[in-house]
Design a protein around this nucleic acid. Structure first.
Length: 424
RNA sequence: AGAGAGAUGGCUGAGUGGUUGAAAGCGGCGGUCUUGAAAACCGUUGAAGCGGCAACGUUUCCGGGGGUUCGAAUCCCUCUCUCUCUGCCA
């Protein structure tokens, strides 16, 4: 969530940034008004509480010396009533503000290209080249079926469309990919974690996924638990309500999990095979860092993700998302896309974002900042997240790019020590 | 799922209505001592909000929410979570 103080002190700045995201800035006026009311409640209530506290002490003294305090007590009775009313007003105003705040996205960073839609995203890097082959390219579904390594029909039988079954060398290849990616990220300084994949509502809220995206999640009503759409959620929550030591920053985690997405509203789009699935595998990267370092850390994280594709030798590009297309919690975001030879288009396989203090403010992840006066103050750390990477679409690109004329798959060099075989 | 116990500051752990934001110990930080270090001793050490340029003042916070009271960590209700035992199960 945004800082209310920023809205209070710099409303025009906030509005202009929201406009860049195609958001209606009027909501800021509403929050400002509620904030004024809120401060009024606080001041009135605190003045009365101060009075109540001091008189209560006096009453204690009088009672101790067996005196009569009935006058003061009845006076304070009235004051207590007033405080109750004021605090109720304050609570209501607080929750009104909070509801509004939950639907306001993070503000785009100055370096983010302005744009109206995804068409205005900017390609900033292209790596490798499109191979040309003199045989017919099979898509991943065809390859998966022929080699008996992927079975989408049976995946659907088990759970419905959008669920897949890996088999034999296909399963092993997937596992190899995950292990390879984790090992690479551990080398890059990330600490591996294995997290719960069902998380509480509080964790979802802290990651700013709920209430805005509640319909996109699988939800277990009986236990009020959500299936995670990304490991970003549990990993971010590792340090919820904590104050980190500045010397420990940046704190970097990587973790593999299954990810679950209902993909409500995208039925009919990219329904083939792995292109859009309800459950997929992903190695996630999270970085908690000092605010002043978050944009250099963002570039490093992008590099960490790209390193995987380079080692796999997969043709890819990087897109810098424009102001209208960056995710809700992000201030700046890069997408990594891999080339699908069969689909003849780019597939998003990673998104690397700097969420600044947007999530950490709600999650209360802070560090102790030492001021010039040698005093300390807590400040929110910045949180970054990135896929490093998501396997399903990567698998599409990999299978297609590594197919041979005979219809087999030549396992990428770096994965062979993991798979134990060279060809599928 | 059944029975019971509990939730207090970075940690351990006192505290059952009136200077208790909270004893004590540990840890952390600063200092004395020391060539240096350890030990010992002394001091210091929570967060959030509001007001203030600041010094500082003030309010709130002892799992969450509500209640009783002039006054609650302390009494009542409720929810959540954790632990132990039994059952079930990977």
């Amino acid at each position: 969530m945004l800082d209310v103080k920023l809205i209070r002190d710099n409303p025009e700045f906030v509005k202009s940034k929201l406009k860049l995201r195609n958001e209606n800035p009027d909501i800021i006026d509403k929050i400002q008004e509620l904030d004024r009311i809120r401060l009024e409640f606080i001041r009135k209530s605190e003045t009365l509480k101060e009075l109540k506290n001091s008189v209560s002490d006096e009453i204690a003294v009088i009672k101790k010396s067996k005196g009569d305090a009935s006058g003061k007590i009845s006076e304070m009775k009235k004051v207590a009533e007033e405080i109750k009313t004021l605090d109720e007003g304050l609570r209501n105003t607080d929750s009104e503000i909070d509801i509004l705040l939950k639907y306001i996205p993070n503000l785009p960073h100055d370096s983010v290209p302005e744009g109206k839609s995804e068409k205005d995203n900017v390609q900033i890097l292209e790596w490798g080249e499109k191979k040309t082959v003199d045989f017919r390219i099979s898509d991943h579904i065809e390859l998966g079926k022929k080699l008996d390594i992927l079975d989408f029909e049976r995946g659907a039988k088990i759970s419905g469309s959008g669920f897949s079954l890996y088999k034999g060398k296909g399963a092993k290849l997937e596992r190899a990919l995950i292990n390879f990616m984790l090992d690479e990220q551990i080398k890059n300084g990330y600490t591996e974690v294995m997290t719960p994949v069902l998380v509480s509502r509080a964790s979802m809220e802290a990651a700013e996924k709920v209430p805005k995206f509640e319909d996109d999640m699988y939800y277990m009503e009986k236990d009020d638990l959500f299936a995670i759409p990304t490991a970003e959620v549990p990993i971010l929550n590792i340090h919820r309500d904590e104050i980190l030591k500045p010397e420990d920053l940046p704190v970097k985690y990587c973790g593999f999990t299954n990810c679950f997405r209902r993909e409500a509203g995208s039925y009919g789009k990219d329904t083939k095979g792995f292109l859009r699935v309800h459950q997929f595998n992903k190695v996630e990267l999270i970085n908690f860092c000092l605010p002043e370092n978050s944009y250099t850390e963002l570039e490093k994280m992008l590099e960490d993700a790209l390193g995987i594709l380079r080692k796999l030798n997969i043709y890819h590009r990087v897109i810098e998302l424009c102001s209208a297309d960056i995710g809700f919690a992000a201030a700046k975001c890069y997408d990594i896309e891999v080339w699908s030879y069969a689909e003849n288009k780019w597939l998003e396989t990673s998104s690397v974002s700097n969420c600044t203090d947007f999530q950490t403010r709600r999650a209360m992840v802070r560090y102790r900042k030492v001021l010039e006066s040698n005093k300390t103050r807590t400040e929110f750390v910045h949180a970054l997240n990135g896929s490093g990477l998501a396997t399903s679409r990567l698998m599409v690109a990999l299978l297609e790019a590594y197919q041979t004329e005979s219809g087999n798959i030549s396992v990428p060099e770096v994965l062979r020590s993991y798979t134990g075989f060279d060809v599928i």
